[in-house]
């Protein structure tokens, strides 16, 4: 876009961002202090990185340590930068790229509200059963289903519910952990 508009062939104008993009799931252990979340989000916003999903909660209350699960998309060099940028942050203890390190579990929880009556209502219940979604709230003309699983399973459930009267969705975002005995050190 730029090279032809600029008189010089300066490296300033070479666009290296148009490479193949990959999705990675990162686990980040950080101090639970005020401003840490803002700093991590600010890194993504300021440097133009993508956040597909971000979840955070304190995991070790005595040590005030939080675990972030971040799903991000970018070229291999951008992913490498993201990890390096996260790892050099003062309150960050460690960064693990679960996608690179091998097998991991990724789960998300969704609550899905469906309105309707008659056949559609029966069909919604039947599909919920097939997906092992639980009914956590029921009224004469609505259900709230609770569903846990991989993000694509939740996507699929939601798309099936659309014609059956889906009106509202709330999702937690992904929490992830590596399979096997290995432990991510704080």
């Amino acid at each position: 876009m730029n090279a032809h508009q600029q008189a010089t062939g300066s490296a300033y104008n070479i666009d290296t961002t148009k490479k193949e993009r990959q999705t990675h799931t990162l686990a980040v252990i950080a101090e639970n202090q005020p401003g840490v979340l803002a700093r991590i989000i600010g890194l993504f916003a300021g440097r133009g990185y993508n956040i597909d999903s971000l979840t955070v909660s304190e995991t070790e209350h005595e040590k005030h340590v939080s675990r972030f699960t971040i799903v991000t998309t970018g070229t291999p060099s951008v992913i490498a930068q993201i990890k390096a940028q996260l790892d050099r942050m003062v309150p960050v203890h460690s960064v693990a790229d679960l996608t690179v390190e091998g097998n991991f579990l990724a789960r998300e929880l969704a609550m899905v509200k469906v309105q309707g009556a008659g056949d559609k209502r029966v069909e919604a219940l039947r599909l919920a059963d097939a997906f092992r979604a639980r009914v956590v709230d029921a009224a004469t003309d609505s259900f709230v289903f609770e569903l846990t699983g991989k993000p694509d399973k939740i996507d699929q459930f939601i798309s099936l519910m659309v014609p059956l009267g889906l009106v509202e969705v709330s999702r937690t975002g992904v929490a992830a952990i590596a399979r096997g005995p290995g432990v991510l050190k704080a």
């Binding site: 730029n2 290296t16 961002t17 600010g42 916003a45």
Partner: peptide, 19 residues
């Protein structure tokens, strides 16, 4: 601002202005 493909790269005279 520096060109879009350089944002996040610590380019010359880059800062996270909106941040």
């Amino acid at each position: 601002q520096v060109p879009t493909h350089l944002i996040g790269n610590d380019a010359f005279q880059e800062c996270d202005t909106v941040g």
